[in-house]
Design a protein around this nucleic acid. Sequence first.
DNA 1: CAATAATCGATAGTAATACTATTATGTTTG
DNA 2: CAAACATAATAGTATTACTATCGATTATTG
Lengths: 225, 225
Amino acid sequence: MRALHSKLAIKINEKVFKKDPLTSELGEKILREGINLIESLGFENFTFKKLAKEIGSTEASVYRYFDSKHYLLTYLTMWYWSWMEYRIVMRTLNIEDPKIRLRNAIKCLTEEIEEDKEIHQIDEAKLQRIVVVESSKIYQSKSVDADNELGFFQVYKQVVQRVADITLQIKPNFKYPHMLVSTVIEGAHHQRFFATHLPRLTDVVEGEDAVITFYTQLVERELNL
Amino acid sequence: MRALHSKLAIKINEKVFKKDPLTSELGEKILREGINLIESLGFENFTFKKLAKEIGSTEASVYRYFDSKHYLLTYLTMWYWSWMEYRIVMRTLNIEDPKIRLRNAIKCLTEEIEEDKEIHQIDEAKLQRIVVVESSKIYQSKSVDADNELGFFQVYKQVVQRVADITLQIKPNFKYPHMLVSTVIEGAHHQRFFATHLPRLTDVVEGEDAVITFYTQLVERELNL
DNA sequence: CAATAATCGATAGTAATACTATTATGTTTG
DNA sequence: CAAACATAATAGTATTACTATCGATTATTG
């Protein structure tokens, strides 16, 4: 009984999987338990063998869906960015003032996702934690260029482009819109990671989400708002 | 005939190696060829077996210096940050105006190192390319907390602290000095990587080092200079 | 100068990883 | 009901990430 193909369909580039995991129960388990296991073991120690054991299936069956754990992580990251793009669209649509659109978008990109939305079969809060810690591994790899050719980073680029466009509406002659946005996105991830593991590299402020505050401020100052 | 123990001694936390690679010719070869191989193969595909073959030695001998390739990368990264700290000190010492000190420090952190200094046995330009692409893997790993306990990230933290202190001299009530500096450092690395592999995430400007310009500007705007 | 320690190369071996291939048994669908 | 498809079970391979042992050579020290 799969409650799939939910309201908002998130479409993932087909080249990243061998068999669409959203078309079978086993596939969904791979995604769900994959997220759990990657989070608890870390991507390095995560294997398809362990995953298969967890979901009561076999290694070979998992390989029928994904060519490697690298592509599973890629899939999950693509899913995250598709979902994020949707969120950004929702929160900027119908807002006239580009300054508010921008602020909302930055908040979207930098805030911590709360647990327990239960709209998808995928737990977005958990997924965010994986994206924060592990997702840079999907491009910091020898296969970046090949994967980029296949379009695996397209959604990520779209997200950057979308927010960059808002900055250009505010300051049309701004020379570095993409750098600013990608700095904010990657920066927010790093800061969340640092806050947990290397707090001396960040400034955690009690009772405030310093990450949102800092990057919102940074962007607004950069565009002299 | 090793031309070692050069003028400026870079001291590396001893816990990261089993035997100090700077005390033997084999050790130096491990560092030198290690850098070459990691750059050409990528850290994932780099193995001690391949390294041993390259330097005409054996896997077991390499293991006599480092417990794992992870610690070799950690060593190299620590070396880079020690060297970077020295550079920053040199370029900020005796400069009275904190604004200029800051600008120099940011330039140090964001500029591309040119080839062929030949002061150390280590090629800093090549090392920087490795640090840009691979170094985040030393902390984005399950052993972060243990490695942090052992002090492996101390030099990195010192660098951040040092530059953060300059920002505080300029703006004493600034709430996010560490976030700002670590954002600049990690951001600069990402932008250099993006420029090569995912150019739509950045803004390469012909004839100008956009990375230096962008982050210098960013910092100065953040501190309203 | 001799003893001894350090260093290294050579070889071997292990457990785990990252896969691929084959086959047999269901299960769905047309 | 037959064809097509999905999965489990099993087996197997090449590579990786190590560890252990053992002489031979080289450097250090007493």
